[in-house]
Design a protein around this nucleic acid. Structure first.
Length: 575
RNA sequence: GCGCUCGUAGCUCAGUGGAUAGAGUGUCUCACUCCGAAUGAGAAGGUCGCGAGUUCGAUCCUCGCCGGGCGCACCA
């Protein structure tokens, strides 16, 4: 495929400018208005160096490239050079590329040979998996897929919250008020109930807290009874989480959570001491980060137990030593910005230069509307929406719509899952991840407009045209070699251009840890396809025209499916 | 109080140091004898929170305000 920016940069490049070709490429714009061409170069920037008026520079550049076969027209307007691509030439090259690449169109190998760790989801065990957890889970999964698609060697970690005094409380509560049958039936609900009851009782009987602390000490020391209970809680919790992960189509390479690092921290406490970073403050051990405006990072509590920062230091070093990562990405809520800044600063002070390769990818808060107020979710106060309920409701709603439309010849249950769950995932990946949002049933169950079902519908529609063509006896292998002069219309060309940009968009989304960039682009593609579909009849009598258009339909279908795949969403043939 | 972050159409959100700031949704219209109407087209809707500064040019960068969210040591 022709690299248009390269062609343009070559025409403009001149040693006397004192600019590299890459710098020139960076200045090439894609005009919002198509009447201004496909690419544009603003000449204001060269005016100073060349000491020449921008319009004159533009005229000069325009004169130099007008003969390239890739461009139909090059002109200068208001100090811009506008480049118009030859549409037939472009469509031919592009569709040939997609036919050859197939499922791998959009993928690249820019990251080859580099290890990238993505830590995401990371729920606390024995607590329900609610709508707030969807963010880390779904965004993290998309980021993993993006890194995988750009050729990196990836490793997915679910850093479970499976350690801390809370488990001392849980064990005490279970022994006092729990039952095995209850636990087996509804593990998380029961455990949460015990935990809540513990807090209520502990207000009246503070000695329960001491008992919990002692129990946790036993657990840490590896006492068999306590350890067995903890393992049971962990196992049951994970089974419930896996049910949700299964619905979402999400897997991990490691479930090593906080407990995994419980015996790997002392070494760093010593190291901090040796390096003179640790100071005592109010009975606790801290690293003073006041001079960096980061307050104090607490390493050990006054009772000698460790904290979040301590465990994250141990985890980071363990991962660096075990995997020698190029990047270690933490998909964790923006509420923890300060924690990550402190943690990185401590690693830096310890002399671990690779801390710069540890990236916190933050995302905004999900809250709930509580009457007139908007509040954070709170499991204990019962203000919570379970993710599994959201997924199931979305699937049911989809099924209703499908039955209304009297879908025949389709596995309704299977497709309803793909569409309903796809809708929830898509919604989550639509906005910039940093934005806060208020959960709303109306919004998550809306399937019109810029939604997952809209994109899936577009895919199903493309599939349908291809099916129909085949049923009418068309030989689809003729879409491999077609006359692209039939793809010069505005709607066909707009669609082709969007498809052409997919590999670039995938890389951009990866580099910025921002799946929504791809989601948005995918909506643009779907819109362009639907416009093309409306504007033009595809299955026309003229065979040459028909196969050219079918080639574009097939390419669109491939690309839409590939992009959905990168977001973790299925692309049904019918819906 | 300090730090981080967000503020763009009624609502939900894109957007870029450059040409006339865009979608979706909602409202009002139009289009299924025609390849899937979960669709497409049109109308209407804007002081890009406010004020300075840098620049040939700022919605975008800098500073100061205003408003919302989050965080600020024994939770994670």
């Amino acid at each position: 495929m022709t690299d248009y920016k390269e062609l343009i940069a070559e025409a403009i490049y001149d040693e006397s400018l004192g600019l590299s070709k890459d710098e020139i490429k960076g200045w090439i714009e894609i005009p919002g208005d198509e009447s201004m061409g496909d690419y544009a170069f603003p000449c204001f920037r060269l005016a100073k160096v060349l000491r020449k008026a921008p319009p004159l520079i533009a005229a000069d550049i325009a004169g130099r490239v007008s003969d390239a076969e890739a461009f139909a027209k090059v002109e200068n307007v208001n100090a811009y050079v506008n480049f118009f691509i030859d549409r037939a030439f472009f469509a031919k090259e592009l569709i040939k590329d997609i036919n050859e690449a197939g499922e791998s169109y959009g993928r690249s190998n820019v990251g080859q040979g580099r290890k990238v760790i993505v830590e995401y989801s990371s729920p606390n065990i024995a607590k329900p998996f609610h709508i707030g957890h969807i963010r880390s889970t779904v965004i993290g999964n998309a980021i993993y897929k993006l890194y995988d698609a750009t050729g990196y060697d990836t490793f997915r970690i679910n850093h479970l919250g499976d350690y801390g005094t809370q488990f001392g409380k849980m064990i005490v509560a279970y022994r006092k008020w729990g039952s095995e049958e209850e636990l087996a039936k509804e593990p998380i609900k029961s455990l949460l109930g015990y935990y809540t009851k513990f807090h209520e009782e502990a207000e009246k009987h503070p000695e329960l807290n001491d008992e919990a602390r002692e129990t946790f000490v036993k657990l840490e020391a590896g006492e068999p009874e306590e350890l067995a209970l903890w393992e049971k809680f962990r196992k049951l919790s994970l089974e419930e989480f896996n049910r949700v992960y299964g619905m979402l189509g999400i897997e991990f390479d490691s479930y090593n959570g906080e407990s995994f690092y419980s015996d790997k921290m002392e070494r760093f406490v010593d190291e901090l001491k040796e390096k003179g970073l640790l100071v005592e403050s109010q009975g606790a051990q801290i690293v003073d980060l006041e001079e960096y405006g980061l307050g104090a990072a607490m390493i050990k509590k006054s009772d000698g137990s460790t904290l979040y920062v301590t465990r994250d230091i141990a985890a980071a070093v363990y991962r660096k030593e075990t995997y020698d990562f190029y990047k270690c990405i933490y998909v964790v809520a923006s509420q923890q910005n300060l924690h990550f800044k402190q943690w990185k600063k401590v690693l830096e002070l310890m002399g671990y230069e690779w801390q710069k390769d540890c990236i916190h990818v933050p995302f905004g808060l999900v809250s709930l509307s509580d009457g007139d107020d908007i509040k954070m979710m709170s499991t204990r106060e019962g203000r919570v929406v379970f993710l599994e309920d959201v997924l199931n409701t979305a699937v049911e709603k989809t099924k209703e719509i499908m039955l209304e439309k009297e879908a025949t010849g389709i596995d309704v249950d299977e497709v309803a899952k793909e569409v309903g769950i796809g809708a929830v995932i898509f919604q989550e990946l639509s906005n910039n991840r940093i934005k806060d949002y208020v959960f709303s049933w109306d919004k998550v169950l809306n399937f019109d407009g810029e939604t997952g079902p809209y994109v899936q519908y577009t895919h199903a529609r493309a599939s349908s045209v291809l099916r129909k063509a085949a049923a009418e006896g068309a030989d689809l292998s003729k879409t491999e070699n077609f006359d692209s002069k039939y793809l010069e219309s505005d709607s066909a060309y707009t669609l082709a251009k969007l498809i052409y940009r997919v590999p670039t968009v995938v890389i951009e989304a990866t580099d910025k840890y921002e799946p929504s960039i791809l989601t948005r682009h995918l909506v643009d593609i779907a819109q362009a396809f639907n416009k093309f579909y409306h504007d033009e009849h595809i299955l026309v009598d003229n065979e040459d025209e028909k196969y050219a258009k079918l080639a574009l339909v097939k390419a669109s279908k491939t690309v839409i499916a590939n992009c959905l795949g990168l977001l973790g969403i299925k692309a049904p043939e019918r819906m």
